[in-house]
Design a protein around this nucleic acid. Structure first.
Lengths: 333, 333
DNA sequence: AGCGCCTGCTAAAACGTTTTAATCAGAGGT
DNA sequence: ACCTCTGATTAAAACGTTTTAGCAGGCGCT
């Protein structure tokens, strides 16, 4: 292995000077500078980033903790994070949590800190109380943390989609299509996003003077199965239903299938609006009207937020950033 | 920051002894041992893994380089890698390549090596000649590398799906459903997987004495759009076609939509078989018959392979592992 | 000529571990 | 009482960097 010592020797100079030339933090005369770089070139020297991190207390590594990366949402966010990370010169340490509700937060974080990450992006979905571990006191001892998709809390850095606004757009769109009995298949209500969308559905109907009783609501679990079951249940309770707002696109595809099997015409008998705008949604039958979230943008912004916090070398102060969603109209409504 | 020195002092012992107690590589008397652990507990000492990596030349970090993590395949593989990584005590350094064909392989690898990763899983799809960089000579200087989904090459560690076998199963299934004019919408042919599946389609038809001319073949690009366009094109050329094998499920969903618009009954007029078994495929309309790849398993095996190579502390010798796919019969055929 | 002041460099310390080589205490054997 | 051996402990070196403190020597100024 080629170290800074070898380079120093080859250039007839001390290791410290090589370091100075490399980092540029201290002046080095043009002559020796060029000798050093020539030696680096000849020897093919590559600095050892571990050693550098050790003394600098800066690893240029950011940890991202997430779950269900096989789903479109988390994956898209991850992609956005990566793009911004590359731009700012960070590497990414990835940790997947299979069971966010059960897993040991402390152990995960401890490992990351021991590895000297400069910051953490916590993109595990807020389910149940699994963020309760992050007390203000604990966070004081930790590198900056940015939370993705989580209920705003004072003193935390959080990046979100405006779920209520998205739900409002969806329901208003259905209303504009002359629908008057509009149901909702919600995600699991221990998820914050699901609650927000549900709230948006309810509030918008109330504002429009339309019914929003629990009769029109069924709880799913994000899966296509639950969308299918949910639709059947809703139609049984309310055969007069003429529009549905689905908590996500996966449930929408299940609901579409159920509607076909039951012989409902889409959008004639029943108009559907989803949430997420997964790539396939354009190819559902019929193509799905849905709410586009700027997930990639969320990822980028989350990383940028962490970066800013690191640069200020302060704990991540409070900053709540909300990305606005967008309505994508297709043939299902 | 609490270091091993503080612990040593608190336990009235030298830093070396603390290390011995911690690693267990050298004997330490029960009395001092318990004193040390008590001190660790009281002070809340957490070893700094960077420093440890530096001296051990072992970071317990494995790099995974991949692309298009927003797609089901790569994401599922990643998930498998992560599970096995957690089991074996590795952390994962993730690098996403946006443009596998263009990006600078050398720079990426250099960065990973400089960060001291113990091994690399190269899961970037083999497109064009982007693996040409990995000559035997270069690999000698690098930590062990496992390649995922790539043409077998002597001296390399490679984990694969048996794409030809999968294609064969798909086509044989269509034949068993009394289909006699069976088309294929292939993935982009600079992808190795696409070529393998195409070959499987061709060979199986030939073996059965059925037509396999280029008339029945169209080239897509994995996207639903290209599946839609491909189906229209095929049906225009061959209105007598009664079965299609699609290179992946995304193209299948596009083809399904085109078939609906053209008024073809599925599977009555036309039977479809996809490839990948993405979660949504079960909810296509009609549900899609497809080939299940053990992608999660591929990820697990890839990581295990790297681990084995590391343990033998040799360069990754040749090992070609092939995972067998499986036919999932649903209503589209 | 003497004084201070830059400029460019070096030797040594530091980062937080583990490992090596040496030392020390005590047990056991004669 | 002496010697040897063994097992536990330590001081110091090492890993590959950067940073600190200090040291020459040239320059300009009085």
């Amino acid at each position: 292995m080629i170290t800074v010592k070898h380079v120093a020797q080859a250039a007839g100079v001390s290791p410290g000077t090589v370091s100075n030339a490399l980092t540029g933090k201290r002046p080095v005369s043009p002559k020796t500078r060029s000798r050093i770089f020539q030696a680096i070139e000849e020897l093919g020297y590559k600095p050892n980033l571990l050693a550098r991190s050790l003394v600098n207390r800066r690893s240029h590594t950011i940890a991202i903790v997430t779950s269900e990366v096989e789903q479109f949402g988390p994956a898209r966010i991850l992609s956005g994070i990566d793009e911004q990370a590359e731009e700012l010169g960070y590497s990414l340490l990835l940790t997947l949590m299979r069971n966010p509700a059960e897993e040991d937060v402390e152990q995960t974080i401890t490992n990351l800190v021991a590895r000297g990450v400069d910051g953490i992006i916590w993109a595990v979905h807020q389910v149940g109380n699994n963020r309760r571990w992050f007390t203000a006191e604990r966070r004081k001892e930790l590198p900056p943390i940015a939370f993705v998709t989580m209920e705003p809390k004072p003193g935390m850095a959080i990046v979100n989609t405006d779920n209520r606004a998205g739900a409002k757009m969806a329901v208003q769109h259905l209303i504009s299509r002359e629908r008057r009995v509009i149901g909702h298949i919600a995600g699991p209500l221990d998820w914050w996003e699901a609650r927000e969308r549900l709230h948006g559905w309810r509030a918008t109907l109330a504002d429009a003077g339309l019914e929003n009783s629990d009769d029109l609501l069924v709880k799913g679990n994000w899966s296509a199965e639950s969308g299918e079951a949910g639709l059947r249940q809703l139609l049984e309770r309310r055969p007069d239903m003429d529009g549905i707002f689905l908590g996500n696109d996966q449930m929408a595809i299940g609901a579409l299938q159920a509607a076909h099997r039951l012989g409902y015409a889409i959008p004639g008998d029943l108009a559907l609006v989803g949430f997420d705008n997964i790539p396939e949604s354009r190819y559902f039958w019929p193509p799905l009207t849905t709410i586009h979230q700027g997930l990639f943008e969320i990822g980028r912004v989350a990383l940028q937020t962490i970066h800013d916090a690191i640069e200020e070398s302060g704990a991540s102060g409070e900053r709540h950033i909300t990305i606005q969603p967008e309505l994508i109209v297709r043939e299902s409504s």
